[in-house]
């Protein structure tokens, strides 16, 4: 093998299933914990890139203690990476996660590419890829559909509703488009093999942070009140006629 491809991932409670109480408490007890959809895509994309380069694929997770649990690392390893590295960060923020990813990436002399999902390793802010690229001093190739490695690499990204083809030199920082590839569903063989793959756990270094962010309050967002008009006519045709009439009168149609 020649070179390393890194793929970043998040092991965290899904926003789906998370509740916010009236008093502002965030309750994630009923949320499923795992990889985000965009990370599934990123790992699959990175596997293909590593195969193209003849490189090893290292999955790099940053997050609280749960990221280093056996369940988590096996779930990640079963999706194609050759190795897993986890960086434990008790209170991850966009900046601390980006710094941890950049620190790991910059320590690899043979890095071919760092691959990230659309919403990897943050809380849906979608800002980690841009910050990581900035910290590494590399351009972020965003919304990427495909990469053909070489010097230069040929990169196809989404652009203005269509696509653009770019040429980029050196180590690539790639933010994968959410529909770039279809992620695999790990089979029993993948799951069994995952248990034998190397896992390295490190604690996050003190982040370079010259900003003080102090939480003040959290409030649930209330949906706007709606009309709640229910149309239950004798026939579908009658219900539709009534609806179209009312929408027209309301200026909706």
């Amino acid at each position: 093998m020649s070179g390393t491809v890194l793929v970043a991932y998040q092991w965290a409670p899904s926003a789906q299933g998370t509740l916010v109480t009236e008093s502002g408490q965030v309750d994630a007890s009923r949320a499923s914990v795992g990889l985000s959809d965009s990370d599934h895509v990123a790992i699959e994309f990175a596997r293909g890139l590593a195969d193209q380069a003849g490189a090893r694929l290292v999955a790099l997770g940053v997050g609280p203690e749960a990221v280093s649990a056996g369940l988590a690392t096996k779930a990640v390893a079963s999706r194609g990476p050759d190795e897993v590295v986890v960086v434990r960060d008790a209170t991850p923020t966009t900046i601390s996660v980006a710094q941890a990813l950049a620190a790991q990436a910059s320590g690899m002399d043979d890095l071919v590419a760092l691959v990230l999902g659309d919403a990897s390793n943050d809380h849906g802010t979608r800002m980690v890829p841009g910050v990581v690229a900035g910290l590494l001093g590399r351009p972020l190739l965003a919304d990427v559909r495909s990469v053909t490695l070489g010097e230069p690499a040929t990169v196809v990204t989404k652009f203005a509703g269509g696509t653009q083809t770019l040429q980029a030199y050196g180590t690539l920082v790639v933010q994968v488009a959410p529909d770039a590839v279809k992620p695999r569903v790990p089979g029993m063989r993948d799951i069994l093999a995952a248990a034998k793959k190397p896992v390295q756990v490190v604690d996050v270094s003190a982040s370079i942070d010259n900003v003080a962010v102090t939480p003040i309050s959290v409030s649930p967002v209330q949906p706007p009140s709606r009309g709640g008009r229910v149309i239950a006519a004798d026939t579908p045709a009658a219900a539709v006629a009534q609806l179209v009439n009312e929408l027209s009168q309301a200026g909706v149609l």
């Binding site: 923020t93 966009t94 900046i95 980006a98 849906g124 802010t125 979608r126 800002m127 980690v128 890829p129 841009g130 910050v131 990581v132 690229a133 900035g134 910290l135 972020l140 965003a142 919304d143 989404k158 370079i208 942070d209 010259n210 900003v211 962010v213």
Partner: peptide
């Protein structure tokens, strides 16, 4: 802004200035 290119540039700026990032 929240578009792809805006986020890409904002990320580079945050990295260069040591800024915190708040989204939405």
């Amino acid at each position: 802004g929240m578009g792809v290119d805006s986020r890409l540039l904002a990320g580079a700026v945050a990295a260069a200035t040591g800024a915190e990032v708040l989204a939405d």
